[in-house]
Write a protein that binds this DNA or RNA. Structure first.
Lengths: 155, 155
DNA sequence: TGATTTCCCATGGTATCCCATATGAACCCA
DNA sequence: TGGGTTCATATGGGATACCATGGGAAATCA
């Protein structure tokens, strides 16, 4: 079964709520996680979101270090201190917390970007910029790695 | 289900009480520990707090030394001496003891930081400083690492 | 007995629940 | 094929529950 794919932009309401795209909710329901797991990305102005599969990924990172050690503590603060468990209400909405607002710059609109095992939460304009840059880099990587096919744009 | 996650800052009242964040109380309730287990961190100006899961980690530590050995006794004294069992009142509050005050520098506000199996108690400004440092270290640890060493899974 | 701690209740602000509505896509049937 | 109908989704808003916080009163301690 496929994971989170495509991207959607929804509006925030006066109470700070936003609808999670229905296709994403379907994936979360299959995953079985209660609510949503969110963590601010360390390398861009976005928030990673998902369910058990994302959480397992995070846990794997911190389990490489023995608990109660200074290294583990630092990592746990960076990972779990920067995480949240927003609830999803009966209508499929979540509230955008201050932490997410601060990290993403979101004001009145939210872009949800599918990334298979997780999805990201972006301020729409920042996502457009990031996406353009990502596509440039992807093209460069492809043309540099593949044993020289035609150099045409593949879209 | 995930453990202690995200971070919260609450005010101390005139009686030295502070509300434990509701999401943390929910985790503690699942854990089943009576009250709260607190122990001063040996490598930073914070207090580790949690329930049975934290206690189990600490016990695992001291069990590395055979009972009756001088090392075990010394460690036990050090651990118990640095520990407390604050009660949690009917409204979900705990009292910040003098020991916690001395070790953390807390005066009128308290920051609670989720670290999955435990959480930490900080003076807000000191936490901000430590967090910036922790994020730098985490980045270095995660990026400079060899592709997933499997040394964490021996239990 | 005076000082501190614990229990209980009050309150303001916020989050959550529940219902209503608009929009648009899918469907059905003639 | 076309028009109407149904349905899911996104969005708005009122009512309610929850939470952090303050303070009084009872209980405990020294």
């Amino acid at each position: 079964m496929s994971g989170f794919v495509s991207h959607f932009t929804n509006r925030l309401d006066a109470k700070g709520r936003v609808s999670i795209p229905a296709p994403f909710r379907a994936v979360l329901a299959r995953d079985g996680f209660e609510g949503l797991y969110c963590i601010t990305s360390s390398h861009c102005e976005a928030v990673d979101a998902g369910g058990n599969e994302l959480l397992a990924e995070i846990n794997k990172r911190s389990e490489a270090f023995s608990k109660l050690s200074p290294d583990h503590d630092a990592l746990a603060i960076a990972l779990f201190g920067a995480s949240e468990n927003p609830k999803i209400d009966g209508d499929g909405r979540m509230v955008i917390s201050d932490m997410i607002r601060d990290h993403t710059g979101i004001t009145d609109q939210v872009t949800f970007v599918g990334m298979n095992y997780k999805f990201q939460i972006w301020e729409p304009e920042k996502f457009r910029e990031y996406r353009a840059e990502a596509q440039r880099r992807a093209l460069a990587m492809l043309s540099g790695q593949v044993p020289v096919p035609s150099q045409g744009e593949l879209a």
